[in-house]
Amino acid sequence: SPVALPPFFMRGSIIQLADGELKRVEDLKTEDFIQSAEISSELKIDSSTVERIDNGQSPNAVVIQFSVGELKAQVCVEVLVEYPFFVFGQGWSSCCPDRTTQLFELSCAKLCVGDVCVSLTLRGMR
């Protein structure tokens, strides 16, 4: 398999917001990301819309094409099917929610074309 999923997606992982507040990964809300990015001097939240989901190089991988930000830049990422993205107003979502829940005990919705995910860019970047 390509890469192991990072440990912070495990249910119960402690996440520090930009204002110092600690939350569990499963308790994060859309506002937590928005407010943290507002405080950040370097990072900016972008809306990344899922345009396509295709099979990846290995059976447990997918290639997700996003349309990023106001400029609608097309960006492809290859991830494991269980990799969770945070969808605005919905929360954690992955291409295979059952597997995400099985591996990380993290409740997930199904990531679909048209979903708008939270992503980051650098401030001041064009």
Binding site: I15, F33, S36, V77, M125
Partner: peptide, 19 residues
Amino acid sequence: VPVFPWHSLVPFLAPTQSD
């Protein structure tokens, strides 16, 4: 207990080509 920064959790998506 490890504490992870919020920005680890969301992908950094930026166009690879600049204009």
